[in-house]
């Protein structure tokens, strides 16, 4: 089983990857640190998962070579679980990518990373409601300190597909 870590540049995908696999790939505070993919392995609930740290991408329309790498990886893998990593202080744009991935029918798990930054900015996100509406697990994390990573791991098996038609209806009726 394969897990892809996807998200915008500089949201901490590599930090999550290092946490999940115990690897040592480069984490930096600027967009575009990872330009190639890195693979690692993790045991989750007794099953071995291949985890891929995908270069940052804004949408599923590539605009540079690093984003092309990202989308090739998404297309190449047979029914992967996609962990969409979102910067908690920039939820909307992160959700845009998450929607695109969900619309393509992938099993999705949303990681609201940099949760500490959101707290610092007095940003309140209703995780339960978000989860209920989207129909996929949503987990707050602080990857650089490791906070929330174990919850993220527990939720990997419950990553799920969302029916976009239903989602549209649910949101419109809010």
């Amino acid at each position: 089983m394969t897990i892809l870590l996807m998200g915008h540049p500089n949201v901490g995908k590599s930090a999550v990857f290092n946490r999940l696999t115990g690897a040592n790939i480069t984490e930096s505070n600027y967009p575009g640190t990872t330009v190639d993919f890195t693979e690692g392995y993790a045991f989750i609930e007794g099953e071995e998962y291949k985890i891929i740290d995908v270069p940052g991408t804004f949408s599923t329309e590539p605009k540079d070579e690093a984003e092309k790498v990202a989308l090739d990886i998404l297309a190449e893998h047979d029914d992967p679980i996609v962990i969409v990593v979102i910067d908690s202080t920039k939820v909307e744009r992160g959700l845009y990518l998450a929607f695109e991935v969900m619309e393509r029918g992938y099993r999705v798990l949303i990681d609201l990373n940099m949760w500490d930054d959101a707290e610092k900015h007095d940003l309140e996100i209703d995780v339960c409601q978000l989860e209920k509406i989207l129909g996929v697990p949503v987990v707050p994390t602080v990857a650089i300190s490791g906070k929330g990573i174990s919850t993220l791991v527990e939720n990997v098996p419950s990553a799920s597909r969302t029916d976009i038609g239903e989602l549209r209806e649910k949101i419109t009726n809010l």
Binding site: L95, D126, I171
Partner: peptide
């Protein structure tokens, strides 16, 4: 949709 969803779940 995202706009509406965020208005319901995120408070700045």
């Amino acid at each position: 949709l995202i706009d509406k969803l965020a208005r319901e779940t995120v408070e700045y």
